[in-house]
């Protein structure tokens, strides 16, 4: 299965959210990284055919997804960043409704719904109204609905938002087990989630892809530019203001270990370390979210 975008562009008035984007995605897990406003959500909505591109097209196995219509949507699972729900529906009812929308027969719908509620740790709450759910529980319900039809293309926008560490691990395991022979695209601000499960990283900025590749390939971009150094704790704040710090760890001896992204030695005692995705993210997007 290959999902391809050709010169995909989406404009909102004078703002270009996705800019002549070309990418070919085959089976695997893709992590979509980018600062707020980079165009990640718009790209996902375009891939889900719930927004119409200003120009360009999306092709699945050589056919336009517009022409495929129901056939394409039957392959699709989507967890939106902010998803609505029916407060008076119980979790199981909500999944049965989504299953009906996805064309599952009654028996399969019930079995799949119960299995997925179990998988996301909500089986005990299956008959509770969604209005009583916490943010994390709603998010898990959202993940369950996206997977109801065993989608071949699973698109997850901020799937780990609101999940506690234990649930994030459960989610990562669920996606890893699910992803075989499927295209899974997930965007998140929690870079470590992507680092664990994504086979390839798509890094977006201003509606364009600035990096696309395996995690170790794209982190090699900043080889030699990540440093660790120890500074007195009382001076750490001063360094934080002037340097691009990706991590800061206080030691018991009154020192703080800084992880710094810089082209040249930032501090005299700094040593080079292996870059990770978080370093790369900060290298490209330092200050973007503050705007």
């Amino acid at each position: 299965m290959e999902l391809t975008t050709i010169e995909l562009t989406k404009q909102y008035g004078s703002k270009t959210a996705v800019n002549h984007l070309n990418i070919a995605l085959s089976n695997g897990v893709y992590g979509l990284l980018g600062a707020n406003g980079a165009g990640k959500t718009t790209l996902m909505r375009l891939l889900c055919a719930i927004q119409t591109p200003t120009s360009g097209k999306i092709i699945l196995n050589g056919k336009s997804i517009v022409g495929l219509g129901e056939k394409y949507r039957s392959l699709l699972g989507y967890l939106p960043q902010h998803f609505g729900y029916y407060p008076d529906f119980a979790a199981l009812d909500f999944l049965l409704y989504v299953a009906a929308l996805k064309g599952l027969n009654e028996k399969t719908a019930k079995r799949k719904s119960e299995d997925l509620l179990e998988s996301v740790g909500l089986s005990a709450e299956s008959n509770h109204k969604i209005r009583t759910f916490s943010g994390g529980m709603k998010q898990r319900l959202g993940i369950a609905q996206a997977m109801l039809n065993d989608p071949h293309i699973l698109i997850l926008d901020e799937p780990t938002a609101g999940l506690d560490p234990k649930e994030r691990v459960r989610f990562r395991n669920l996606i890893s087990a699910f992803s075989k022979d499927r295209i899974v695209i997930l965007s998140t601000h929690i870079v470590s989630d992507v680092e664990f499960i994504a086979e390839k990283i798509i890094m977006m900025k201003s509606g364009q892809i600035i990096h696309f590749g395996k995690p170790h390939e794209i982190t090699s971009e900043i080889d030699g530019q990540v440093w660790e150094c120890s500074v007195p704790t009382n001076r750490a704040e001063q360094y934080t203001a002037t340097l691009n710090i990706s991590n800061l760890r206080n030691e018991e001896n009154g020192c703080t270990v800084l992880r710094v992204i810089a082209e040249d030695t930032p501090i005299a005692n700094a040593v080079k370390v292996q870059p990770n995705l978080e370093d790369l993210y900060l290298f490209y997007f330092k200050g973007e979210n503050d705007r």
Binding site: C48, A49, I50, E70, R73, S74, L76, G77, Y78, P80, H82, F83, G84, Y85, Y86, V98, L101, K102, G103, Q145, N149
Partner: peptide, 10 residues
């Protein structure tokens, strides 16, 4: 918000 889910379903 449910439109996201409805319109992406078959």
């Amino acid at each position: 918000g449910v439109d996201n889910i409805i319109l992406t379903s078959k």
